[in-house]
């Protein structure tokens, strides 16, 4: 089958291409099961070597190729032609500075990530065997879902609050915080909740629900944000999530 691409391009270093513009490409012999990312490779290799985009693993693990596909954020490596149809529109994710074509500067995004202390804190003595801090399965479920985040920025850059206000810490950083806030072994809950209670922390979330369907890992993003809000309000992570409310992962 034939597929047409409409791609939002921009090259801030080239005066003629400073302003974003649309360019179309047509590909023949496309199979329904081809992934969007593969077709982008074909464009780059067969038609226009200047097309710039990021990718690494090609298998939905590294989180490099988040972009807006047919109007909605997704990973190009996870969508097949049969998911998106024969007319495919690609744009860079919104809210982060465009470096070139589909590549954005992720640094502001990672700054927010770093602000929530995305590391395990536990200063009590190391367990007797000197190795891992064991956790019971019934405690582990609280961070099951949010532990799946790959930091691709699909959720954060789907959020109108983040577009308007780049200081908003954003869904992804809150999801990452959730993973530690609801880790029963972690000891920095109070500190982390304090960071998230900043005026540009969780309060900027207006429950718009763009983030949840944007997540390529199927994380219940808005729910996680809601749980962090409740933890901030109550000043504790205790009793916020009921075990019976946790989605069963397949």
């Amino acid at each position: 089958m034939e597929v047409t691409f409409r791609i939002r391009r921009q090259n801030p270093e080239d005066p003629a291409k400073k302003k974003p513009y649309w360019q179309e490409f047509t590909l023949q012999n496309v199979a329904e099961t081809d992934r969007v990312l593969e077709l982008m490779h074909r464009i780059k290799w067969e038609q226009d070597g200047t097309l710039a985009f990021r990718r690494s693993c090609s298998h939905g693990i590294c989180g490099s190729d988040a972009m807006r596909i047919n109007g909605r954020n997704a990973l190009a490596c996870k969508l097949l032609v049969r998911n998106v149809g024969s007319k495919i529109q690609l744009e860079p994710i919104l809210g982060l500075p465009v470096l070139k074509d589909l590549i954005v500067d992720m640094e502001p995004f990672f700054d927010h990530y770093r602000s929530i202390m995305p590391y395990f804190v536990n200063n009590s003595p190391v367990p007797a065997n000197g190795r891992e801090r064991i956790q019971m399965p019934e405690d582990q479920v609280f961070m099951n879902d949010t532990g799946n985040c790959i930091l691709c920025a699909c959720c954060t850059t789907s959020c109108p609050s983040f577009w308007a206000n780049g200081k908003y810490v954003g869904p992804a950083a809150i999801v990452q915080a959730h993973r530690f806030v609801f880790d029963t072994r972690d000891e920095a809950t109070a500190e982390r909740l304090d960071v998230l209670a900043d005026p540009d922390g969780v309060w900027r979330c207006r429950t718009i629900y763009n983030c949840t369907p944007a997540c390529p890992r199927g994380i219940e993003v808005t729910k996680a944000i809601g749980e962090v809000k409740l933890a901030v309000m109550r000043g504790t992570n205790k009793g916020v999530i009921k075990a019976s409310d946790i989605k069963v992962n397949h």
């Binding site: 909605r72 919104l94 809210g95 109108p160 308007a164 429950t207 629900y209 763009n210």
Partner: peptide, 20 residues
Amino acid sequence: MTSLVLTLTETLRYKGALGQ
């Protein structure tokens, strides 16, 4: 950070679900 105009137009262009 995105400009105010872009924020408003993209809010209407992004294909969010009913929640948006």
